Structure formats: structure tokens, C-alpha cells
Amino acid sequence: MDEASERDFRDYVVSRRGILEREAYLLVGDPHLAQDLVQTALAKAYVSWRRVSSSENADAYVRRILVNANISRLRKRRVRELLTDMAVETQGAYVTPPAGADTTRVDVMRALMALPRRQRTAVVLRYWVDLPEAEVAATMGCSVGTVRSQSSKALAKLRGQLMLREFDMRGV
């Protein structure tokens, strides 16, 4: 890679890494795994940076790499992870809120992580990243109808889970 391309890639990483890590976190629910996923995606983008930078939308290209890397990670995973109610306490990571704190964010993240991978990906890209349905479909490698159905099912599940949580809290 020539010096100008190298500088261009570095500038891209500096400006977009935080955003990519937030998107990856919403896909995987673990801050460390999200960082690994972004690092993998950026390494793949670096190898083909000439093609990425000359594309119409470099963000869409890298986001597609990110989503594909997550799919590959899930296919290769040999040790199953078990999600629990207890969050790992790490510096700056997602932790259990103190007693009496608003737990809405925690509840939303738990509900989001309970969704199947394709539904979670559709919701994150469509409503968190705010991409149009056509771009979500291109990123996920499916039709716009699939994005709509996956999003609809996911939103119904999220509403149901969060309403149950709200109902449970009223009874306490």
C-alpha cells in the first residue's frame, strides 16, 4: 500500500473506529468481543483498502465486512457462551447498575441479546445505525422483504419482553 493510501486508511480508522465498535457491541453484546470483531473487520478492510476506498460508500463496505465477520465467528465458535444475569465488571464495560438505578438500558440490552442473530442484525442496522431498508438488505445479503420481516418479528419480541419486565416490576 502506498503512503497516501496508508494515511487515508489511518484517518478512516481514527474517525470511524468508535462508531464501528458501538455497532459491533450491539451485534454481540460483549465489549471485548466487539473490539475483536472490529479489529478483524478493519484488518480485512486494510487488505482490500484500494477497493474499499474507491467504493461508493466505504462505511457500507466495512459494515458488510463486520456483519460477515460476525457470522463467520458464530459458525466457527466451538465453545458455547452462556449469558447470565451477572455482568462482568470491567473498566468501562457494560456492568450491572447499582441498586435503585434505572435498569431500562440493561433490560433493553438483555432483550436485544436474546434475539436471534439475523433479527438482532436487522434491528441494529435499521434502527440504531438508521440505515434504509435497501442498505440493510445489501449489508445482510438478503431481500428488503426479509429485512422487513426480521425487523417486525424482532420488534414484536422486544416489545413483548420489555412489557413483561414492566409488568413484573409493577407487581413488586
Rank of each mutant, 00 (worst) to 15 (best):
S48W: 02
P116K: 10
R64P: 05
S53A: 13
S55D: 09
R120N: 07
E133S: 09
D59I: 08
A111P: 02
M109D: 13
R118D: 09
V106H: 05
E81T: 09
V79A: 01
V67W: 01
G160F: 01
M113E: 12
T90A: 13
P132Y: 04
S48R: 13
A43M: 14
T84G: 15
L42M: 01
V79F: 00
S55W: 04
V144C: 04
M109P: 06
L158F: 04
V95W: 10
L131A: 06
L125I: 01
Q91V: 07
S152Y: 09
H32V: 06
G145P: 09
W128E: 09
R51C: 04
V79W: 01
V52T: 13
R120S: 06
R118N: 08
K157M: 13
E89A: 05
L158T: 02
D59M: 15
Q35E: 12
L42T: 00
L162M: 01
A137W: 08
Q119H: 05
L82P: 04
A41V: 00
G92S: 08
A99P: 13
I65F: 01
V106M: 10
L131M: 10
I71D: 07
T103H: 03
S152L: 07
T90Q: 10
V47A: 03
D102A: 11
M163T: 15
